[in-house]
Design a protein around this nucleic acid. Sequence first.
DNA 1: CGGGATCCGTTTCGATACTG
DNA 2: CAGTATCGAAACGGATCCCG
Lengths: 131, 131
Amino acid sequence: MREKTERIVREWGDACDAEISIAVLGGAWKPSILSLLGEHEVLRFGELSRLLDEPTARVLTRQLRELEDDGLITREVYRQVPPKVEYRLSDLGLGSMPLIDALTAWGGQYAATQRSALDAAAPPASHKTPA
Amino acid sequence: MREKTERIVREWGDACDAEISIAVLGGAWKPSILSLLGEHEVLRFGELSRLLDEPTARVLTRQLRELEDDGLITREVYRQVPPKVEYRLSDLGLGSMPLIDALTAWGGQYAATQRSALDAAAPPASHKTPA
DNA sequence: CGGGATCCGTTTCGATACTG
DNA sequence: CAGTATCGAAACGGATCCCG
C-alpha cells in the first residue's frame, strides 16, 4: 500500500477511521475513477481520461497508481505495440462502491441546498425575479 | 459558504458529487470534530481540543471556521471573561452523521484488512512467529 | 479562554515537453 | 497508446508568538 496510507493505518488510533477513508478515496478524480470503473467494469487509460475531464496524464497516472497501491484497483498491462493497459476494480474497490455512492448522494444533496442558497442571494434570471 | 466550496458547487458537473462531500468533510480533524459533536451535542473550543489530539489552536480554529462557513456546525460566542465559545451541529451537520458513520465503518474495515496484510509481511512477535 | 498574526516545510495539482 | 521527467504555483498543516 502507499507509504502515506501505511503510516496512517499504523499510527492513527481508531478514533479517526473516517480519515482513513478520506486518505484513501480523497485524491483528485479518485471517486470519479472508482465510479466509472464500477459502471464500466474495465477501462483503458485513454478511456478513463476521456470520461473524466481530460486531466493531465501525469495526474491521472498518479491517482491510478495510488489506488492500485492501496489495493482498490488492478492494472493489467498488455505488452504490445501500441501499448494497452486495463484498469478494473479489485474486491476492495468493489467493496467501496456503497461508500462512493453515499458520498455521491450526500454531495449532490449538499450541492443542491447550497445552490438554492446562492440563487436566493443572487437570482439567476428565473421566473418572478425582478429584472 | 467557503469560497472553495462555492467554486466547487458552482463549477463542477454532477458527475463528481462525491468530491463535493470530500471537499466539505475532508480537512484535518473534520470527521472527528463532527463525530464528537454528534456524540456530545455541544462542546467548547478547549473541550474539542482535548478530545482530539490537541491540534494547534490555529489549525483547530480554521477547521471549525470552515465547517461553520460550509454550514455544518454553529458557533455561539458568550461575551464574557474568560470567553466561552460553544460549537454544535447544524441541521446540515446532523444530516452528515450517516455519511460520517459510513466513512468510519469503511475506514475501520480497510485498516483492519491492511493491518493483517502488514502483519503477515512483518509479524509482530505474536503466537507461533519465529523469534 | 479562545483565538489572531506570521512564518515555514510539505504535499499536491497542473502545464509542458519528451518517450518506448 | 500510455505513460515519464521536470518545473512551477498553490493549498495545507503545523509551530511559535502575541492578545483581548
